[in-house]
Design a protein around this nucleic acid. Sequence first.
DNA 1: TTCAGCACTGTAACCGGTTACAGTTAGGCT
DNA 2: AGCCTAACTGTAACCGGTTACAGTGCTGAA
Lengths: 336, 336
Amino acid sequence: MSSIRDVAQKAKVSVATVSRYLNDPEKVAKKSAYAVEQAIRQLNYKPNLLARNFFKSRSYSILVLVPNIANPFFSRVIRGIEDIGQQKGYAVLLGDTRFSLEREAEYFHRVETRQAEGVIQLSPNFPGDISAYTPSTPFVNACECLHEAPYPTVNIDNTDAAKTVTNYLISIGHRRIGCLLGPDGPTMHSPITQDRLLGYQQALSDANIPLEEQYLIPGDFSLQSGRDATDLFLKCSPRPTAIFCMNDEMAFGLVQGLKSQGLRVPEDMSVAGFDDIEFAQYCDPALTTISQPAEDLGRTAMRTLINILEGGADAVQRHVLPTQLIVRDSTAAPVT
Amino acid sequence: MSSIRDVAQKAKVSVATVSRYLNDPEKVAKKSAYAVEQAIRQLNYKPNLLARNFFKSRSYSILVLVPNIANPFFSRVIRGIEDIGQQKGYAVLLGDTRFSLEREAEYFHRVETRQAEGVIQLSPNFPGDISAYTPSTPFVNACECLHEAPYPTVNIDNTDAAKTVTNYLISIGHRRIGCLLGPDGPTMHSPITQDRLLGYQQALSDANIPLEEQYLIPGDFSLQSGRDATDLFLKCSPRPTAIFCMNDEMAFGLVQGLKSQGLRVPEDMSVAGFDDIEFAQYCDPALTTISQPAEDLGRTAMRTLINILEGGADAVQRHVLPTQLIVRDSTAAPVT
DNA sequence: TTCAGCACTGTAACCGGTTACAGTTAGGCT
DNA sequence: AGCCTAACTGTAACCGGTTACAGTGCTGAA
């Protein structure tokens, strides 16, 4: 493997000239540039970025912490992150934490040892010692964020979106509206669930519909938990006429469950989801849902992080990206 | 940020002793070890891996080239890669090529510049100059592989799996079996499509069923292309009684299309898929399909790559992992 | 007392880039 | 001719680890 010194020797110039040619060809005379170019070609020289990065004390890599890369929503977010990374010359290191704080800590260690310059976290926590956090810490939290978080966040307005979809159900005539929750409890805190629940409650409250505790069924964002919720909703008395599910997978499972019980969607029960995953429009019936700008969340998070890294961040930024209610065929006015 | 020299000074030992303590504490006297330990703690010293990796000329990173990270099958494969990487101390750099050879080349450049030590490619091509390939080149091809590839591959037996599912359809009484193909043509060559088509053909041939060209409909692995294929299959004369789709998404789209035309699955048409994505068992009806060991493909690919990197590879390995036919409710004997 | 041998330690070179600083050269002006 | 400046170039230090090699000090046997 040839080094910059080999090139310098072959081109009969100094290493400094070669280095300058590599970094800014304008800085060297045409004649030198030509000689260096020839030497590089002949030796098939490739600069050793391990050496460059070491000297500059920069890795040009960022770490993405994701609870589950196999979740299509997260992989779309990562696609956005990766897209900006590629544009700006940053590599994306993947850290699939599998919901384990231990794994998270192991990955975070890469930042301390300078293998990564910053972190984008897709779970709602800071992976290190939060008391050490300052606005110049290269950390951005996306997708699942605490409201009171002291670091930059990139998110949607979950409360507003949930309120929008609930309002829509009310506007077409529903009064008994169930809600299939995301995971939330002592073992796993989810601001998403909290925020969407708040939006649902606000919509009911604004319409003077009392909240019925029996209409709140816990889930865990999986297809299975949607199916499992079917019987619990059908046991309610009086039975709800519409159900807002906190993600599309659960809505999907619920629709299957309802159909297997002989109920029709939306005639016997309206169902709405959240996320607008690709399968939502191929569901039978096509799913009414909230569309999230997944890739854009990733892109915005990455831009925010790079901005911090390159010293352009003057304040902790909080981005809120717009969502959209997508009305399809799984919701309709209740049969009176 | 403190360096090893600061630690040495504080512990009143030399940098060599500190370095030895970090790499193998057995090598230093207990007294020195204690002093170094204290100094490291007091200074909150973290070794700079940029420096270490530079000296060792190793990055402990590998690059994964994936055509589309948002595809849940690929993200499961990456999960497997990442799992072994974490275990063995290798970071995973993500390269979402978006089917662009240009992007692929940009990413591959990271290997030449030593930012990554090896590549796992999930598309069926070598991203560099294949004439430079030797068995010690740290490159592994997984998921989509050419049979004649000169480099290590990790794959399933697509032909055998397709033959198995087609045989199954024949065994329950079907004679007119359609096939919804994956992408293949002048612009995009897919060994997967070729291999699965071959298996389908072999099964028909073994059963003395002549191949009907009209039963072969092209698709592109998307939900939409499954739905679009519906009319083309229904136009066939005589109409097939079963359709083997080369992935689950297309099967999903096709089932929706058939149902929207008033046909019942499996009574009026059996449908089988390929991959066994999570949605397959929540489809209505639950989808008969071939289960692929996605994470295991990733794990095997990563183990193979690390083996090459660590000098343990004596020959180009070709791994073929097992698949399984999963019979669910979307297939049944034809109504005679 | 001498010395072999072991356990441990320190000095300094090294990895391959970057860059501060000093030096050289060419060309234009008086 | 003499001088100034701009444009370019080369030398060598530097980044923070690792490690070859040359000690040093101690123990115990001859």
